[in-house]
């Protein structure tokens, strides 16, 4: 299994606050990697470095290197819009646009300049099928996406992300705002997608990490404490901090 993302000696600051300290972690291709750790440990910050969403934050500063497909994504010649087409993101709160279901999924394609109606329709259908939402919405594609349930909205956001065929999908606590049944559907979906996409998922739900990921990274106070196969992290971690966290002794 080769690594698609290489994180080398990354320090990251929000103004004077050092949010990440010397992070070195390589993310395997076409597998699910989970980031766990208590709130404020830096796991979401690291995730947002991979598609440069932290560029939007004033006073953010990065030291070190992040390579995706061997390319330094913070290099000056990188066009950030192009990077984000390759590295998609699903957010914590479902955030479909206030547009129709169809328009939501077609959005990224239209951003890329796709105009052909048949092609758009095929790609939208394809993405919705991959996101296991097609059966539920095929009759109501013209309806507002905001009328869907929270779980459906989140799967729509995943479909929207899949439509532009990213290599990597970043998921920032994608199920934390959802009920257990919707959560189960999202997890099932992640398992269906993992052979085709590289998925990095931030989660507070440790059972979720066990269920969906093959590797898990534990972060604490801006540092990467331990990174290993998920079953090792949860059954036989090297570090006492990891053991305490995954057994619920703190966090």
């Amino acid at each position: 299994m080769s690594n698609i993302i290489e994180t080398q000696h990354v320090d990251f600051y929000y103004g004077n606050f050092k949010a990440l300290r010397n992070i070195n972690i390589d993310i395997p291709e076409k597998a699910v990697t989970a980031f766990i750790g208590p709130s404020g440990c830096g796991k979401s910050t690291l995730l947002r470095l991979y598609n440069r969403m932290n560029d939007l934050v004033d006073g953010a500063k990065l030291e070190g290197k992040i390579l995706i497909d061997g390319e330094d994504i913070y290099d000056k010649k990188i066009i950030v819009e192009e990077l984000r087409k390759k590295v998609g993101m699903v957010f914590q709160k479902p955030n479909p646009f206030p547009k129709s279901i169809f328009e939501n999924v077609a959005y990224g394609l239209k951003v890329q300049g796709m105009k052909n109606k048949t092609e758009l329709e095929n790609r939208v259908e394809d993405a919705l099928k991959k996101a296991a939402l097609w059966e539920e919405v095929q009759a109501v594609l013209d309806k507002s996406a905001l009328q869907l349930s929270g779980g459906q909205q989140q799967r729509l956001c995943i479909a929207r992300c899949l439509a532009i065929n990213p290599e990597i999908i970043l998921m920032d606590e994608p199920a934390s705002a959802l009920d257990p049944i919707s959560t189960a559907k999202i997890e099932e979906l992640i398992l269906q997608l993992k052979d085709r996409y590289t998925i990095v998922i931030v989660t507070h739900n440790m059972q979720q990490a066990v269920r969906v990921s093959s590797k898990t990274a534990f972060f604490y106070l801006g540092e990467l404490v331990e990174f290993n196969d998920t079953n090792i992290i949860f059954e036989n971690p090297e570090r006492i901090e990891t053991r305490n966290y995954v057994t619920g002794k703190f966090g």
């Binding site: 984000r84 709160k93 206030p98 951003v111």
Partner: peptide, 19 residues
């Protein structure tokens, strides 16, 4: 969250504002 979703899809700022 709308702005972020749009940027994350690879849309530029101008495109996000317009669409």
């Amino acid at each position: 969250t709308y702005r972020h979703a749009s940027y994350a899809m690879g849309a530029s700022k101008l495109h996000t504002i317009k669409k």
